[in-house]
Design a protein around this nucleic acid. Structure first.
Length: 546
RNA sequence: AGGGCUAUAGCCAAGCGGUAAGGCAUCGGAUUUUGAUUCCGUGACUCGCAGGUUCGAAUCCUGCUAGCCCUGCCA
């Protein structure tokens, strides 16, 4: 588990605690409610919750809702659902917006100490004076305004005396700093916008760089973990903490965000895929969102174990999607019932089997987990097997069914192919085989060996089902600069076939291993008792090469 | 180019001056009523490059190279 995995943040926390810098470890997961969580967020969630837990500390869920233009309650609810589904229980649920009054007071205090001023300049003018990466900025005329006037103006900003963009509150730091974040950064902006939580109480809203350190300090957060792009903001974070009238002195630590092969991870790109109908929504099973992965069939444990095993570092990374798949297989190996489904059926007539007779055969539900017990499955004169399990003219080393070859039908008998029927288009419609009663499964028959074992579904009892097979959303190898050029057109394939009769009882989100196919999830949106729909989560590994 | 950061196998990633963990992937082999699982085996004469310090360097120092991030009243 995570205890075995060490990383630089854990070293820092361990050292801090050994030096008794803090009484307890407090972390937070601070999403902005402006979109859905994805697996990159899961990395942060696992890190924050499990790190604190390991040190017997606590973790808050805090919505960083300082920009009402982008945020919505819909996202608050979705995010809560996802975190709960992953299995984490925040110590407390907080909103940055609950601290608006405290933040306002902190801002006033900065003004009183000559550390902040109200800016008259327009957005464009501010930008011009900010300088560039290589040139220092210039000080604004507003910078020398008196404390009294700044106090008065800021109060008026709050009272709504100004229009959006007319004024802004800035920290007085250093316009010539090589770190652009320190060139008198904006602390408050005016936005006459209704907030999902505070309604129209406020028309001024704090900026992230001012609000975040205060939120952390107010909550007593000790280790504020964020991604690499905030590294340049750390001096500002520390500046705010140093000048705030708060006991707590949280420390910001940055780590590299997760990138996965064959997908995209930015909210902007994911939103574009949704808006432009490349997928069916944020919870489309092809999406790397938590809700998408959940609908696809990924388990919380598989996602968490993945997040633990990829590690935490500061190096840019691109993790192989197959690693995620590995942990799903590992999680479901002993948990999922193993059953048979024929995705692309071809009918087999057992010519020497008695007409109209159905026998029920015992079958273990999971041979690697005896506790799951047994089930009974039917067998009769007519069964379905997988179309790709028969070849009229097979290559060498093909040990499935072909004319004259004998194979084992899982849990049933050996069958041998004698003939096949084609339609006018040359498509094979029916196979004629004979079975050998001596070879019944469980009988101990071993006079002959066969190389192949095929799965099947008995025809008269077969339950029709739809199978949705997913492939990479994004083709990393594709040509083109725009990620939309890399969208895999064939990321969804739908097949119609059959499952065993006992599958009629399958409930939404039930997970199964379909023999020789892979792990499947009963689609929670579209599957019904009348029409079962299964999402393929991941296939089984295979060394089969034709 | 000013600042910040990173560089260990195909991909993640440990390592913290004493002679390169682990996982994924790959490829072999054994077992197998899933071409699955399981098991066993498989790769760094070397840690971006070049110098230096040291008995000893992936680890310390210097220089270089490459990549990522920063000029929102986004977070």
């Amino acid at each position: 588990m995570s205890e075995n995995n060490t990383h630089f943040i854990k070293h820092i926390v361990t050292k801090d605690m050994e030096e008794k810098k803090y009484e307890e470890v407090v972390t937070r997961f601070p999403p902005e409610p402006n979109g859905y969580l994805h697996i990159g967020h899961a990395k942060s969630i696992v890190l924050n919750f499990e790190l604190a837990d390991e040190f017997h500390g606590r973790t808050n869920l805090r919505f960083d809702d300082t920009n009402p233009l982008k945020e919505d309650k819909e996202y608050v609810d979705a995010i809560k659902t996802d975190i709960e589904w992953l299995g984490y229980e925040p110590e407390e649920l907080r909103f940055a917006s609950n601290y608006f009054e405290d933040m306002y007071k902190q801002a006033v205090s900065l003004i009183e100490r000559g550390l902040a001023y109200v800016e008259d300049l327009s957005q464009e003018e501010i930008r011009e004076l900010r300088g560039t990466l290589t040139e220092a900025g210039k000080e604004s005329p507003s910078r020398t305004r008196s404390i009294e006037e700044n106090l008065e103006l800021f109060e008026q900003m709050r009272q709504g005396k100004f229009a959006d963009g007319e004024k802004v509150l800035r920290a007085k730091i250093d316009m010539s700093s090589p770190n652009i974040n320190l060139r008198d950064p904006i602390l408050y902006r005016i936005s006459h916008t209704e907030h999902h939580n505070t309604g129209d109480t406020w028309c001024i809203y704090p900026m992230y760089s001012f609000a975040h350190p205060l939120e952390d300090a107010i909550e007593g957060v000790t280790h504020s973990l964020c991604t690499l792009e905030f590294e340049d903001q750390r001096p500002l974070y520390d500046w705010v903490i140093a000048h705030a009238n708060l006991e707590s002195t949280p420390k910001q630590i940055e780590f590299a965000r997760l990138n996965l092969t064959n997908t995209v991870m930015s909210k902007r790109k994911l939103k574009q895929l949704v808006d432009e109908n490349y997928v069916d929504g944020w919870d489309d099973p092809r999406m790397p969102t938590i809700s998408g992965l959940r609908r696809r069939g990924f388990t919380p444990e598989s996602i968490k174990q993945f997040c633990r095993e990829i590690g935490v570092s500061k190096a840019d990374n691109l993790v192989d999607f197959r690693m995620l798949e590995h942990f799903l297989r590992e999680d479901l190996k002993l948990k999922a019932p193993r059953t048979m489904a024929v995705l692309d059926p071809i009918k087999v007539i057992i010519t020497n089997y008695p007409e109209g007779h159905v026998e029920w055969l015992p079958a273990d539900i999971n041979p690697e987990n005896d506790e799951m017990g047994m089930r009974e499955i039917p067998f009769s004169k007519e069964i379905y097997i997988e179309r790709e399990d028969f070849m009229e003219d097979p290559p060498k080393k093909y040990f499935r069914l072909f004319p004259g070859n004998e194979v084992r039908i899982k849990h049933a008998y050996f069958i041998k192919c004698h003939d096949f029927v084609k339609d006018e288009n040359g498509k094979i419609t029916e196979l004629h085989c004979t079975y050998d009663p001596e070879t019944k499964s469980g009988s101990g028959f071993n006079a002959r060996k066969v190389k192949g074992t095929l799965h099947y579904v008995e025809a008269s009892q077969a339950v029709p089902a739809e199978f949705r097979l997913y492939d990479s959303l994004i083709d990393d190898e594709a040509e083109g600069n725009n990620f939309l050029d890399h969208v895999n057109e064939a990321s969804l394939t739908v097949q119609h076939g059959f499952v065993e009769p006992n599958m009629k009882e399958a409930a939404p989100n039930d997970k199964f291993q379909f023999f020789r196919h892979g792990y499947f999830n009963v689609d929670p949106q579209d599957s019904t008792e009348e029409k079962l729909i299964f999402n393929r989560i991941v296939g089984l590994k295979s060394s089969f090469k034709l």
